[in-house]
Design a protein around this nucleic acid. Structure first.
Lengths: 129, 129
DNA sequence: ATCGCCGGTTTCGTTGCGGTAACCAGACCC
DNA sequence: GGGTCTGGTTACCGCAACGAAACCGGCGAT
């Protein structure tokens, strides 16, 4: 509800790289979250996703449109602009994304600690040899 | 509970390619499901996953072990063998996987239809031009 | 005329996931 | 000495995702 689109909305280190869960490709879940509170323009989506490039954003939005997750609407006003909005199908992904975020909030520290312990024991072993 | 490990347990066309959701890498979710009912040996995991290779299975299991999702236990009996079992952390992924499967059961036809309609309209347009 | 804004496209290059095929080491069997 | 079973490893490779940077076309403003 009160979510603001801001440059620091997502951590710079892309969570999808560290977390064992992905919705679609690398950016789909974050775009769904950006559109949660209403339609956004192309340029507005670039703001909270500073690491994405225009090319990848366009590709991802096109794939999401193809899959019926978002709609693309051109406004031939002046200057012309484009709005992207979630479809009901795209909105239905929010429950799944929330489930994923709940899992991460609850269990990600365990996973991170396991990974740390594993790699530290490995590097210790390699020091011995 | 009554899940049997069989070669046709998973469709030959890997679902993770058509579905906008992935747990970990390509095979992690399926391995978790294979281990749901108890520990399995390396060779037993190859059976229900006919499309996986030994190399990728070994890599995936090693990554899951590193992340604390499975344990690896060697049995020096004769012939020696290895058993993989879910940890509580790995088992906690099952609720997430079930949520993903529920979403797919409910919404995947919509997505597939949207994709079909999109590509057919696209190919129709290219016929016109 | 040219500048900037918007919403991209184009080109090129890199990275990394996943796959193929061959090989291996220990133990037992014949 | 060769074959088999288990649980891998090694070398190599193709493709798709991802990214950096430049360019573009329509339009209004200056």
């Amino acid at each position: 509800m009160t979510t603001e689109l801001s440059p620091d909305m997502f951590a710079p280190e892309c969570p999808t790289r560290q977390v064992p869960l992905r919705i679609g490709d690398k950016w789909t879940a974050m775009i769904v979250l950006c559109l949660e509170d209403g339609p956004r323009r192309f340029g507005e989506l670039l703001v909270p996703l500073p690491a994405i490039t225009k090319k990848v954003l366009a590709e991802t939005l096109r794939a999401m449109e193809r899959d019926g997750l978002v709609t693309r609407t051109e406004f031939p006003a002046n200057p012309p602009h484009v709005e992207y909005a979630l479809t009901p199908l795209g909105r239905s992904l929010l429950t799944l994304i929330d489930a994923a975020r709940d899992w991460c909030a609850e269990h990600l520290p365990e996973l991170t600690e396991a990974r740390r312990a594993y790699t530290s024991s490995f590097s210790a072993a390699s020091k011995i040899s």
